[in-house]
Design a protein around this nucleic acid. Structure first.
Length: 284
DNA sequence: ACCCGTGTTCGCTG
DNA sequence: TCAGCGAACACGGG
């Protein structure tokens, strides 16, 4: 389910659920071997007895720092990426596992944190010494729009050398970390920029608009997800619920009247094998 | 059966 | 060396 806003909710949940707690027991789904590195058995062994100290989010990545069970050892890092269908859910110790549960962490407070991931594009990896900066894929990430802000000058310099359509360029995690297929369409709609334009064709004022739109869209989506989860107090929420209304302006709305100019219908096109939604009338 | 899906990586090409 | 492209991964739903 994850682009930056969903992963941010997941980070807040994990913080609330796990920070300061020890892992008592572990279990994994043998079919999910591809999710783990090193092999699941070694991951589980290292986690047992460890205490979760910190949960961070960078782009779509969750970074956990733990203190290992054996005293005096170096910190233990966990890099969790949710792929397309990954979720962290909290269960009670005796609850039966949900379908597609790939990993369970039983905590010292009687709760269980389960990683559920139908398609298994997600990843759960140990990072020795919690040295996340030593992991090439993490080190290569661009700035995180919410944690670091979006610098329009830097964005312009980066985009002016790319021939790719701007929509496709925005999906590159080395440009900005956390924008996915939904947020790319949403940000370009807010900035009134045609997603098919070569990235290098954007003017400075357009890039400035885009930088603002990216933050606005991410923050709006985050607020709407947090609201969905807000019912019931101890919100276990995090993810778009089936019945929840589509919180997006254009994504998934092909054929609907443009909510801004109302002069045309939202259209769906395919770019880099992914759907793009936009208004052909007010996105120039 | 076919197409679609909030992500990423790999191998090939020019 | 590198930007860009398409296939691949895996599974369920319409």
């Amino acid at each position: 389910m994850p682009e930056l806003p969903e992963v941010e909710i997941a980070a807040r949940n994990l913080r609330r659920w796990a920070a300061g707690h020890r892992v008592r027991g572990t279990e994994s789904d043998p079919r999910a071997a591809r999710v783990f590195r090193p092999a699941a058995a070694r991951v589980l062994a290292r986690l047992r007895g460890a205490r979760v100290d910190e949960v961070r989010r960078v782009g779509k990545n969750l970074l956990l720092t733990l203190t290992p069970g054996r005293r005096g050892g170096p910190k233990l890092g966990v890099w969790s990426h949710l792929g397309m269908t990954g979720q962290w859910v909290r269960r009670r110790a005796g609850d039966p596992p949900l379908p597609a549960r790939r990993l369970s962490l039983a905590l010292d407070d009687g709760a269980r944190l389960d990683y559920v991931d139908m398609r298994m594009f997600g990843r759960f990896r140990l990072v020795p010494g919690a040295r996340f900066d030593q992991v090439p894929d993490l080190a290569a990430l661009g700035p995180d729009p919410l944690n670091d802000g979006v610098d329009p000058g830097r964005l312009f310099e980066r985009l002016k050398r790319a021939r790719l359509p701007i929509k496709v360029a925005l999906l590159d995690q080395k440009l900005l970390a956390g924008i996915g297929n939904i947020q790319a369409s949403e940000a370009l709609f807010r900035a009134r920029i045609d997603p098919r334009r070569p990235a290098r064709s954007l003017s400075r004022p357009e890039v400035r608009r885009l930088a603002t739109a990216i933050r606005a869209s991410l923050e709006f989506t985050l607020r709407s997800f947090a609201k969905i989860g807000a019912d019931g107090g101890d919100a276990d929420i995090a993810y778009v619920e089936e019945n929840a209304p589509n919180p997006f302006r254009v994504y998934g709305r092909a054929g609907a009247r443009c909510p801004r100019c109302k002069a045309a219908d939202v259209v769906r096109i395919v770019q880099a094998q992914r759907s793009t939604f936009f208004c052909p009338s007010c996105q120039k």
